[in-house]
Design a protein around this nucleic acid. Structure first.
Lengths: 348, 348
DNA sequence: ATGAAAGCGCTAACAG
DNA sequence: CTGTTAGCGCTTTCAT
């Protein structure tokens, strides 16, 4: 066993420089009065000894670790990956470091993760909840542990949250499809227990009602099916649905819960001989980075994922410092690309 | 400012249960002898008080934080994202938590990241180095801080590393192209200072030499161009190259440094009217998850990224425990999909 | 402007 | 099997 030579301590610096432990502490931390020359000398000695401050010790004393816990479903999911990046960057700017834990969509893992992070005395937590059971988050709030939830809001409890404007996202996506002449629309949504799923559907239905009320004649159809998350699930669900429909699959547009769902659907459609967008227009949600690269480039409701992360961090800091609770809803924007088609006859 | 009520300490548990601090410590940590009933009682009281062990305190005492630092270029890159996932999962199994820091390819950030993590007294570090300057890693080794480098090995210094068999990867990709009748091959590589870039090219050239020596007649062409990393850079570099070549762009195969480069190249090719794989076969490297989804599905040299991560963690643990240094090279495998074509005339 | 001393919560010797 | 004591490295009064 290679023994790593212990780091020099503040005490070593004190002895080597001839000053007291306390003076050294002040010189190094920048808090309190130290004569300029003394400070310089101390810094010099510290550098020579390769002094590296011990955060565990100061954390014990000050009760601030400058650590924040980030709990996500899966850091590999491009959406979460970007959110994490946003959090990490902002945290780094503020002198915080992030502890990352994946839950793989398991509530038990989420609970365990939060527990571990509390034992590590993180100053706060940012969570993208699994969202079926939220007892763990409720407990967190009761304990007064600063936390921010990303992508969901709960009715039962008042929490800090940051999410994108899902209702509006659903609305603009649907409105666009209607405005471009689509009549028979299928919504491949995520399971209803997800907050974003419910809210996006609300937006979709609002657009439909609005359009219908302004419509003089004709008929619009909307059907909604629900899938578990992940590419594989969406692929299976959708493929099964299309095959079961057989000849009766006559939708001219497919609205998807997110881009991953859209990829899965496009793959299915191609396999079954449908052309996108000629036969079916496809709209996604999130605008993850591959959506502009795939073929055809995906029309999608874009959310600013980096900002979701950085805003979550800032909200957390504010909550830690002032105890204020904030609800932040970020705007969404429809990116028009080539997976959709204007079906209104143009008479040019 | 909401004050969060302090966590109960071991001392609180001691007082409430009537045992000494030490006995409580042993009961809770499981180390040392405690009578069964005492232990049960202590655990019960601890639970009632909502006791949550303070890792910062025990870390200070034991000099083990059970924290490991993970330094990556960009957690958003699907390759690193999977590696991180592998590390995190394995770490979690071993009772470790990961501190994640991005460097955005900046050496200064990398240095700063390592420093921050050392201050936080991580038990070890896993690094995917920026790889131009490695002074920071050399220093780490000199200081005897356990660390593992992923994806590169350095000549100057003996480190723990885990990487995929890049030489063989280059070799099998090139061999496959040659065996399927490609004559005019372009290699879109990353800059030479990257370890993987150099080694993959070595493999490519070895396959070429081997093929040439067995060839009776005819001519094979290989040209290599170099691009900075990232989709945008690769896209620019490649597009510029193709346009400059103009009519003389007559390659029948394109070998790419990684899948991202391949996506960029495919996008360019499509835009300029080339058909993949009819006009040009394209091979990638890494097999990131989208490569099976995009159109056409990408033929690529697959590496096990999760395993890269989990092996890195296990190597780190071993290094921490025994001081042993290990070099691990993981196998690669060519995934044949539809971005390549067999150009040998078949006489069936 | 600097120093002495106490203590954060826990663990590790050592006694009993 | 259990208790006493010291101390990890740092910050924070409170003196000087």
């Amino acid at each position: 066993m290679v023994k790593r030579k212990r780091f020099a301590t503040i005490k070593d610096v004190a002895e080597a420089s001839g000053f007291s432990i306390n003076t050294v502490s002040r010189a190094l931390s920048g808090r309190g009065y130290v004569k300029k020359e003394t400070k310089e000398k101390i810094l010099k000695v510290a550098a020579e000894l390769g002094y590296t401050r011990d955060c565990t010790a100061s954390a014990l004393r000050t009760r601030k670790t400058h650590l924040i816990g980030v709990v996500v479903v899966d850091n590999t999911n491009p959406f979460y990956a970007e959110v994490i990046k946003g959090i990490e960057l902002e945290a780094r700017n503020y002198g915080y470091t992030i502890l990352l834990v994946n839950t793989d969509r398991s509530y038990e893992n989420e609970e365990r993760a939060i527990n571990t992070l509390l034992q590590r005395r993180v100053d706060g937590l940012i969570i993208t909840a699994v969202q079926t059971k939220i007892d763990d988050i409720i407990r967190l709030v009761q304990q007064g542990i600063p936390n921010v939830v990303i992508g969901a809001r709960f009715e039962k409890i008042q929490t800090n949250y940051v999410c994108s404007d899902d209702e509006r996202g659903g609305y603009i996506a649907m409105k666009y499809l209607l405005d471009t002449g689509h009549k028979n629309i299928l919504f491949l949504n995520a399971q209803k227990h997800k907050y974003a799923s419910r809210v996006r559907e609300e937006g979709v239905r609002r657009a439909l009602e609005e359009f219908k009320s302004e419509m003089s004649e004709g008929q619009i159809n909307l059907e909604v099916i629900y899938s578990n998350e992940g590419f594989e699930s969406a692929y299976e669900t959708f493929k099964t649905f299309v095959i079961r429909k057989g000849q009766k699959f006559n939708y001219d547009a497919l609205l998807c819960y997110n881009d991953i769902f859209a990829y899965a659907a496009i793959k299915t459609l191609k396999e079954l001989g449908f052309k996108v967008p000629d036969d079916v227009s496809v709209v996604g949600f999130d605008d993850i980075s591959f959506s502009s690269i795939i073929e055809p480039p995906l029309t999608t409701v874009a959310t600013d994922k980096l900002k979701l992360g950085s805003e979550a961090f800032k909200s957390l800091i504010k909550n830690m410092e002032t105890g204020s609770v904030s609800q932040i809803i970020l705007p969404v924007e429809l990116k028009l690309r080539n997976s959709t088609l204007n079906r209104i006859p143009q008479d040019l």
